[in-house]
Amino acid sequence: MTTEERVPVLRVEHLTKLFPVKKTKLRERQKYVHAVEDVSFEVYEGETLGIVGESGSGKSTLARTILALTKPTGGKVFFQGQEITGFHCRNRKQLRSQLQMIFQDPYASLNPKMKVGPAIAEPMLAHGLAKNQEEAKKNVEELLRTIGLQPEVYDRYPHEFSGGQRQRIGIARALATQPQLLFCDESVSALDVSVQAQILNLFNTLKKQRDLTYIFIGHDLAVVRYISDRILVMYLGKVMEIVPYDQLMSPHSHPYTQALISAVPEPTTAPRKDRILLTGDVPSPVDPPKGCRFCQRCFKAQPVCFQQEPEMIQVGPDHYVRCHFAKEVAQP
């Protein structure tokens, strides 16, 4: 079944987030940071959509805007067919239980003065998923077993745990409200490689056990590809490509995606011969390029790339690329 035949859990339409830049002169024209611009995509039940890109590409801002942690400048967000962009604050509480985020830093995302058991129980009680403290504690202990910790840690403080254990606690806290969609914002980037593998395997296990849907954000393409069904590639606030994981190595891929793929290390000490080294710096999000966002660093750029912004073009099943030459590449 293709994505066109399925009903999306989450649908984002032309979402934009601009941050105003503080003026330094009285008559200076107002400038904006183009953090997220005209982003559209869909997420389907039971899948993991990976969002990948360099630091500053707008990945985290996109997630925070969808979750209404920051107010969008434009566009719409639909969850289960209902628009939630302008959700009334009274209904926001119900929405929070269905959409949860696991943050990047396991050391900063937990209250150091609160024991981990009550921290996980708190959202259960707030959303009415436990009748009292006793029931909440029982549910928390079961959650702790699920994420690979012993129930005895209920009365311990965050500083008594390692980074990997703290991230497991963060996962348990997110699962406490029985969400349908989990946002994982660089959730393994602060962990050791061996611990990363454990947390990624835990995500996959929980996905099967609880019928979860993920949006997994990361800058490491190898990690994102490992866990994702489809991958959305961002650059300077724009979506460059949306591709199923098994088509990621396709010759139809966007030049930026090809550069990211070439940067993934191989299990050998020899340097990669196909490594694509991008020249120049990432342009300022305050003054993005007129044409394609990637034109100033693209190794395939032509004059049209500097003058006209390309549209998203379908080059395969569920595979979309924002490139002027995508049609030419897709032709046999």
Rank of each mutant, 00 (worst) to 15 (best):
G74V: 00
E47I: 00
K76I: 01
G81M: 09
D105G: 03
G53S: 09
V39P: 09
N111M: 01
E37R: 13
V36F: 07
G53T: 11
N111G: 07
A35K: 07
F103N: 00
A35E: 12
Q80E: 15
G75E: 08
E54C: 07
A35H: 08
N91L: 08
T61P: 03
M101N: 01
K93M: 10
L110G: 00
S57D: 09
S97N: 06
R90V: 12
L49K: 02
K76A: 09
P106S: 05
R92G: 00
Q80M: 11
Q80L: 13
T73S: 15
S57M: 04
M114S: 05
P106A: 02
S55D: 06
E42N: 13
A68V: 08
F87L: 10
F41S: 00
T48R: 00
G58Y: 03
P106K: 02
V52A: 06
G46C: 00
G56T: 03
I51M: 12
R92F: 11
I84K: 01
L69F: 15
K76N: 09
F78E: 08
I102N: 00
V43I: 14
G53H: 04
G81C: 07
L62T: 12
H88G: 09
E54G: 02
F103A: 02
H88L: 13
A68Y: 14
